[in-house]
Each structure stands twice: as structure tokens, then as C-alpha cells.
Design a binder for these strands. Structure first.
Lengths: 256, 256
DNA sequence: CCTCACTGTTGCCCATGGCGCAACACTAGG
DNA sequence: CCTAGTGTTGCGCCATGGGCAACAGTGAGG
């Protein structure tokens, strides 16, 4: 999409231009906006009205003068929270990948799935695929299970639909998942062996915010043959330490 | 605009819904977005494309997956900076209005005009009109002159067009304005007597950010008969003290 | 290697929804 | 009161937004 002339919708373009005008001027009336866009004021009014319905624009002070609205802050907030997390965590995910030699991933929950925010490959990592921006199933991954582990039963019921099977080892019954989540809460980390893919093992630990809520998960994943029992204990400890460090950076533990 | 059914543009509505979808899901492809909107994927693609042209959406990681973009942060940033300023300044503007009994205003520069961000009326204030959200001429007001006072000559030439006359006392020659701005730089505040309206006197002082740049102005205004010479000195001191306090709250003076 | 399934992207044409016009409602100032 | 200016609403026309179909690209599996 390097071509700025391609495939744009004129009325949408105009509406977005209104946002830019309001950022510049602070406030503007319909007639002023119409002049900026070189359209009739009834057109400007309809476009502003639509923006207002979505809270991207609101009426400032007196009736009829418009300014940018709180809906923008909300949308931007979703973005900055994730950018901040990746930035704060990056040196630690780098170190963890270097220490383990495996692939390190950070995920957050996005409704019914886990979303990959960041990925750092270790020296032994065989897969070169970049998962950033992609969704993974919550119930079949270590990261996903961490993200589910402290939800209330109501929240869990809301988030989890049918438990799709990916391998013979995938958890597909809700009672089994609940037991697994209980185990994760007790031991403080999640393990997934061959549950998403045969031959893939992953360990994940929770990243917490200043309030102690789980907001993300960090995992170390590699081929099952390399993450065998004797090595796994070390990797679990390293993963837990990394999660704890990131959590501290996000303010966890400072208010207790 | 209490009526959410009125006067909306369908394609704009769809585009804004895409923003909300992306805030929820983190990332999504065109086909996913089309399903969320219940439109054909070519329609979804064009809408996303338009959002991308304005940087509100960008491609996340792999080609073809979209997430919210930095353009959103920019738009939101314009809003939050102003909200922060009003919030930080509010207790001080309240106190100043109580101390002086006059009307206190905070303005920022919005291109070629000064924009009222906040207003607190004192006990003696006769005018009940709320100016928040409105633009005022830079050259004919104490606030406006403060906002102009530290611009470079090139910036000043860019910002100032013709100097409209509002009263016989309005500054209408550029040489005269330059002298006035020099005086303001020296004394640290601006005075406007009968320049916008006959019978209206206002004092304004600069609000500075952590870097020392003037980012806003705070004024005390009232009828000329009340802001006479002997009283004006007190009001000027109070206004300067308020501006300094707000500036400190915004980080001014902490790095010297 | 090939094939298939899926996704994103482009071009065309038509009908629908976005637009301008005109009227109305409201406000402030004289 | 009137006037000038602004925001808001309803109507009908036509331009542009939308769906269809084709194409391009990618990844997985055989």
C-alpha cells in the first residue's frame, strides 16, 4: 500500500480529514469544517455527526463547536498500552532468548484468542516464522492458559467456546481445562507439551501490572526433544524470573 | 445530537467500526474485518486502505494483517496535552479567580488564533458568556500577545496576517505589534486595554513547559473601570504567580 | 515439484447512499 | 422586533461506494 491514490473511499477520507482539522484548530464549527473540506455544510454536518456517534468528536463548550473526543483516547490507549509493554519487556525477552536459545514470545488476550505482541528467536530456534500480530488458541497454548488462569468462572465461560482439538494431547474438555488452570495458579506457570503441535513444548509465566492483574504472558518454546525433563526445570525458572522482572517494570509489587 | 440514528454516513460509520474492531482484536485481516462488518471483502479492503492512508491503521508484522496506527496516537496526543493542562491548572485558575474576583481564562495557540481552553468566573464577573472552545484574535488580546511574544520573526510572519481593528485602541500595524511583543518579553506579561472591546482590560502571563517554551497563557480580565492603575499592579503580580505555579506543575524549572 | 485452499488486491459496472440544495430552527446583536 | 449567521433536517439526483469476479500471492501438504 505504497500508493496513496489507490482504493480510498472519499467520504471516509473526508471524515478523517475532519479529525486532522480539529487536531490543528482545537475546535471548529460545521461551517468552518465545510470550508476546510470544500464541501457543502450539510455534508460536513453529516460527517461530523457520524464521528460524534463514535465519540471521536464531541461538542466543545457551546453547542455547535466541535473538538476531538474521548473515543480517540480510548482507541489510542489500547495501542499505547501494548507498545509500552513490548518496549519495557524487550531487553528481558532478548536476554531470555539468549539464555535459553529458544524462541520467546509475549502475548496478550484479545477477546477469545491470545495475540502475539513480540517474538525473539534464540540461537537454537529452528522455526523462522514470525507470529507477531497473529492470534493463537487460548486453551491449547501455554501462553493462552496463563492468560485464562485467573479469570473468574463467569469470565472463563464467556471467553471459552468449544475447545478445538489440534493434536491428541490437546485439552478438549472444560473440566480438564479447569483442573489445568487450577494447577497453573498453584505452580505459577503453564506448560504445554504437544497440545498445539506435536513436537512443540512451551512454558509460559504471567506478566502482571501494578494492581497484580495478569495483563500478558511470556513464553519460551522449542521442540519437545530439546525441552526434556532435566532441562525444563531450568527453563521454567528462567521464564518465571523474566516474567517477574517485566512485572516489576510495569509497577507490580510496588504498592504492597 | 442525542439521537444516534440521525445524519450518519454509512461508509464512515463502517470505517470507524473497523477502528473499534482493531482495538478489540489487536490485529485482523481484511477477510476477518469484512466478516465483522458483514460487507464484501473488497469493501473492507477499501475502507482499511483509506484508514491506512491517514495512518490510523497500519500493517502489523506480516503483510495483510492490520492494527491501529500511530496517526491515532498523534490525534489523541493533541487532545490529552490540552486536557492535562486544564486539569493541572484548574485549582490555580480557581484560586486566581477567587483572589481577583475577575474572570480567568487559559488559552493556547491554534494556528492563527488563540483558543480558550478553560474559564473560571470570579465573584465580580459581570459577563456570563462561556468562551471555552472559541477562538480569539492573537494580536488584540493579552493572551494572544503572550502566545506571540516568543515566536521567531519568521514564525510571527507566518502566523500573523492582517491586523484587524476591533476598537480605536487595537494594534493594527506590524511594527507596533513587534514593539509591544518586545515589551512583553521584557516585563514578562501582557496588558490589553480596550483593544478587543472598549471597556475591557486584561492581563496575561505565559505558561511554560519543562523546556521553557510558552505553551499557553493565563489571563485575568474585567471591566477597565475596575482594573485601574492602582489595582492593576496587584492583579499583574497575582497573574504572574499563577502562571509560574502552573508552569512548575508542568515541569518548568526542574531541569535548570 | 505441483495443487489446493485461503488470503489480499484490482477492475468494472450499477444501484444505492452520499451529496448539494433549500428550507427550517436557533441565537446573538442592534 | 429584524437581520445575519450558524447549526440541523428533508428531498431527490447522480456520483461514488459496493459487490462481483478475476487475479496475485502464500503456505501447507502430497
Amino acid at each position: 500500500m505504497g500508493n496513496s491514490e489507490a482504493a480510498t473511499v472519499q467520504s471516509v477520507d473526508r471524515a478523517l480529514t475532519i479529525l486532522e482539522v480539529l487536531a490543528r484548530l482545537g475546535t471548529a464549527g460545521v461551517t468552518e469544517i465545510a470550508a476546510e473540506l470544500d464541501v457543502h455544510k450539510s455534508t460536513a454536518f453529516r460527517l461530523v455527526s457520524t464521528l460524534e456517534t463514535h465519540r471521536l468528536v464531541e461538542q466543545a463548550g457551546d453547542r455547535g463547536r466541535y473538538s476531538l473526543g474521548v473515543g480517540l483516547l480510548r482507541l489510542a490507549g489500547a495501542t499505547t498500552a501494548r507498545l509500552d509493554l513490548v518496549q519495557e519487556a524487550r531487553p528481558i525477552t532478548r536476554q531470555l532468548a539468549a539464555d535459553t536459545g529458544e524462541t520467546v514470545n509475549i502475548t496478550v488476550r484479545a477477546e477469545h484468542a491470545a495475540l502475539y505482541l513480540d517474538q525473539v528467536a534464540g540461537s537454537s530456534a529452528l522455526q523462522s516464522h514470525n507470529w507477531v500480530g497473529q492470534h493463537i488458541p487460548l486453551h491449547a497454548t501455554s501462553n493462552g492458559k496463563v492468560l485464562l488462569s485467573e479469570l473468574t468462572p463467569e469470565e472463563l465461560a464467556d471467553v471459552i467456546g468449544s475447545l478445538a482439538r489440534f493434536t491428541p494431547a490437546t485439552i478438549t474438555r472444560k473440566a480438564q481445562l479447569r483442573e489445568e488452570l487450577e494447577r497453573i495458579r498453584e505452580q505459577g506457570y503453564a506448560l504445554a507439551v504437544d497440545e498445539l503441535e506435536v513436537g512443540l513444548t512451551a512454558v509460559a509465566a504471567p506478566i502482571r501490572n501494578a494492581h497484580g492483574d495478569i495483563i500478558a504472558s511470556i513464553s519460551v518454546s522449542g521442540p519437545t526433544f530439546r525441552l526434556s525433563d532435566e532441562r525444563l526445570d531450568t527453563v521454567i525458572e528462567q521464564c518465571l524470573a523474566a516474567a517477574e522482572e517485566i512485572s516489576h517494570r510495569l509497577g507490580w509489587g510496588l504498592r504492597q
